[in-house]
Nucleic acid binder design. Structure first.
Lengths: 248, 248
DNA sequence: GGGCTAAATTAACCTGCGTCATCATGATTG
DNA sequence: CAATCATGATGACGCAGGTTAATTTAGCCC
């Protein structure tokens, strides 16, 4: 069951049995990929897309001086570059962060799905639009939050997504990212991320140890990052400590 | 011909005659909307989407203190909230910036299109993914560019999009945005945007007058904003840059 | 164990941008 | 015509976060 986590708990669009079977059948190969390996580059023409089964992947844009800005982080269950199906050519690179297991789905199989199963096609479309909604939340983060808020927001988002994937209990999760990765995600330097982590630690909000993230106070962390999970379109009551903060 | 500008010049996916007719037929109403009017709010359930015919629209997320971050700016030809078709509920607000004319397309008409015209459906999907690509470019802008670079990048992007819509000659375009709008787009304060505009003016790169934007040196402006138009998926050679003012 | 490397940590210094305040300009309205 | 309001423009000041550099810690391999 490779597609087990795909669209799991997503608001009103989980897969029907026949849809899931069809998607499983579209997988031609399952691969393991080593950490920090780029699997697709900006400008290349792609004929397949990648469903992430295990591990963490990222998408990023390089600037002229070799600095990079991450534009997405993917967790198991994400159809990492499904948007390459309509776009064919990507505007960014795709890489693993940790060791990963991925399932390969050729675009010709997706062609058949769009022809024959329009409802499933619409769910695939939906999946790519959740990524876009996450992009928007990241824009908010970079445009309107200070450094502590940015890191807090990202950790809250990741926690909720990992809970949905069954990989976090709502307070602790294993994660393979470094402080430098956080910097590339939050538009900061690694030095300043380190200062932020110390602050979060001393304020008893969160402990980050690269291999393990421990959220000490989910509610206050969400408050600090102005985090409201609605944009993730996840259908569940957050555990114990609802970080809900309806906008005015 | 309301759909005239939709997907115009987009890489390999302009509309076929029958597709265009079908989309035209899906329009149930054309409205004019006054400036600075919110037409959809985060959390609302939507049964229709909006194709922008004339004017400028925006999408934005409010923070807790009433500040806002724009996550998208739309020009004529954009299917502003087409992503509301799969998502149904949006994570942000949608509003006009200038006076606008819009065409309304009910989601039931899009249901029929996805069932009966899978190739057109894929082009609609494509259109929403260009918006996502623009989100990513904005993430790069906010995460990796300084204030001058951010404004330069945005002006370059807008110029290219307006050229494609037939509303810029590549150097000058009418635009209804204030410096405060630019601040909400670029994650800056209006005071600092003012300083940036002065810098761009004194450096002979660009003159911004709210009603009229004049790009004096497109090439250097693009360089300053690290702007590369590939992510817009537009099929044309950017207008040549006849040397107007040889640099000292 | 020792040697190697990536990651984390911390300090010292500096600057880009935010904040606050004031004033000018022009458009709109009574 | 004065009054009001949105927009633009500028100066003074402070601080969040960048930069540079040095040190410590933690894996990992032989």
């Amino acid at each position: 069951m490779f597609t087990e986590r795909f669209l799991r708990d997503k608001r009103g669009v989980s897969l029907e049995v026949d849809e899931r079977e069809r998607l499983e059948a579209a997988i031609v190969e399952v691969q393991t990929v080593e950490p920090r390996k780029t699997i697709a580059r900006a400008g290349e023409s792609l004929q397949q897309s990648t469903l992430l089964l295990e591990g963490i992947m990222s998408r990023y844009i390089d600037d002229r001086r070799g600095l990079r800005q991450l534009v997405a982080v993917h967790v198991p269950g994400d159809f990492v570059d499904l948007h390459a199906y309509p776009l064919k050519i990507l505007d960014h690179d795709v890489a693993t962060m940790t060791a990963a297991t991925v399932a390969i789905v050729p675009h010709v199989a997706l062609d058949a799905i769009t022809r024959e199963m329009p409802r499933l096609a619409r769910k695939l479309w939906f999946a790519t639009l959740i990524d876009a909604a996450i992009h928007r939340a990241w824009l908010f983060r970079l445009g309107r939050l200070d450094a502590i808020g940015r890191v807090a927001h990202f950790l809250c988002e990741t926690n909720v997504r990992l809970v949905s994937a069954g990989l976090s209990d709502g307070r602790r999760f294993a994660f393979g990212l470094t402080q430098n990765d956080l910097a590339e995600i939050c538009g900061l330097t690694n030095v300043h991320v380190n200062r932020v982590m110390r602050h979060l630690r001393e304020d008893r909000l969160c402990i980050f140890r690269s291999s393990l993230v421990e959220i000490l106070d989910p509610e206050r962390l969400a408050e600090r990052g102005q985090f409201n999970p609605a944009y993730l379109y996840i259908d569940y009551a957050p555990p114990s400590n609802p970080p809900s903060n309806p906008r005015p």
